[in-house]
C-alpha cells in the first residue's frame, strides 16, 4: 500500500482569453504517491504543465483543492507557499531559470539558506556533494551564462533537491537539451528516485516517460489513463519503451 504524498480533488484552472474564459483543468482528481517517479503526459495544450503548476502551488487553482500533509495548498498565503517552496517541494523548469548573477554553487545553496533552522555549513557540504553527484563540481564558481544547457539543468536539479524535498516537480526538464544532456539529466532524476526521492515530471517525450514508475495521461484537463510500471533498469529500457509506446498509441498519442 503506497502513501499518498499529494492529493488533488476537483482541480480547476481557467484563464481569461479574448474576453472569455478558457477552462484548462476541469475538475481533476489525482493522488501522487510517495517514492513514485510519476510522469504526466498529454498532447500540447492538454493542461499537463498547468496541472504541475497547480499541484506544486506555483500557480493557484481556480477551484478545487490540493492537499499536502492535510493542508490545502490552494488556500495558502504567500508566506506559507514560500515556506513550502524552500522546504517541502523542489522545482525544475524546462528553461532552467537560474539566477543570472549567482554562481552555480550559490544557485544551489541560496534556497538552502532560506531554511534558517538548517546549519549553513551542512548546506554548503550538501551542495558540494550534489555538485559531485551531478558532475558539475568543476564549474561551481561559474555564472549560469558561462555554462552549457546540460550543466545549467543539472545545477537546477541540484538546487531543487538541496533541501531534500518531499516531492520534486520537473516541468519538461529535458525540453531544452540535446540528446546527450537529456540522457544525463534523466539518469540523475532516475538515480534520485531510486534513492527514495518522489518525482512528479511533465514531459511529452516518450523516452523520458519510460523512466517513470507511473504515467498519467491528460486529455482536455482530465486524467484519462494511468499506467503503472516497475522501477526503471537500463537493461529493460527497450521493452519499457515498447510498452509505453503501445499504451500511448492506445490513447491516440
Amino acid at each position: 500500500m503506497k502513501n499518498t504524498i499529494l492529493s488533488a480533488k476537483g482541480l480547476c484552472k481557467s484563464f481569461a482569453h479574448n474576453g472569455g474564459q478558457v477552462h484548462v483543468l476541469q475538475g481533476m482528481d489525482v493522488d501522487i504517491y510517495e517514492g513514485d517517479f510519476t510522469v504526466i503526459m498529454g498532447a500540447s495544450g492538454s493542461g499537463k504543465s498547468t496541472t504541475l503548476y497547480a499541484l506544486s502551488g506555483m500557480d493557484r487553482a481556480t477551484a478545487g483543492e490540493v492537499l499536502y500533509k492535510g493542508e490545502n495548498i490552494v488556500k495558502m498565503n504567500e508566506k506559507q507557499l514560500a515556506s513550502l517552496r524552500h522546504g517541502d517541494f523542489g522545482f525544475v523548469f524546462q528553461q532552467m531559470h537560474l539566477v543570472s548573477t549567482l554562481s552555480i554553487f550559490e544557485n544551489i545553496t541560496v534556497p538552502g539558506y532560506l531554511n534558517t533552522h538548517k546549519d549553513a555549513k551542512a548546506i554548503d557540504a550538501r551542495a558540494m556533494e550534489l555538485l559531485k553527484t551531478m558532475g558539475i563540481e568543476h564549474i561551481q564558481s561559474h555564472l549560469p551564462s558561462q555554462c552549457s544547457g546540460g550543466e545549467q539543468q543539472r545545477c537546477a536539479i541540484a538546487r531543487a533537491v538541496i533541501n531534500e524535498p518531499a516531492l520534486l516537480f520537473a516541468d519538461e526538464p529535458t525540453g531544452a537539451l540535446n540528446r546527450k544532456n537529456t540522457t544525463e539529466v534523466l539518469d540523475l532524476l532516475t538515480e534520485l528516485n531510486r534513492k527514495g526521492q518522489s518525482v512528479l515530471m511533465v514531459t511529452h517525450d516518450a523516452k523520458a516517460a519510460c523512466r517513470a514508475t507511473r504515467i498519467l495521461y491528460i486529455e482536455d484537463g482530465k486524467i484519462v489513463s494511468d499506467l503503472e510500471l516497475p522501477p526503471y533498469t537500463k537493461e529493460e529500457e527497450k521493452s519499457r519503451e515498447t510498452q509505453v509506446n503501445a499504451w500511448l498509441s492506445s490513447l491516440s498519442w
Partner: peptide
C-alpha cells in the same frame, strides 16, 4: 520569478 520559485516572498 526564479527567486519566488525558490521560496523567497
Amino acid at each position: 520569478g526564479v527567486c519566488k520559485a525558490m521560496g523567497f516572498t
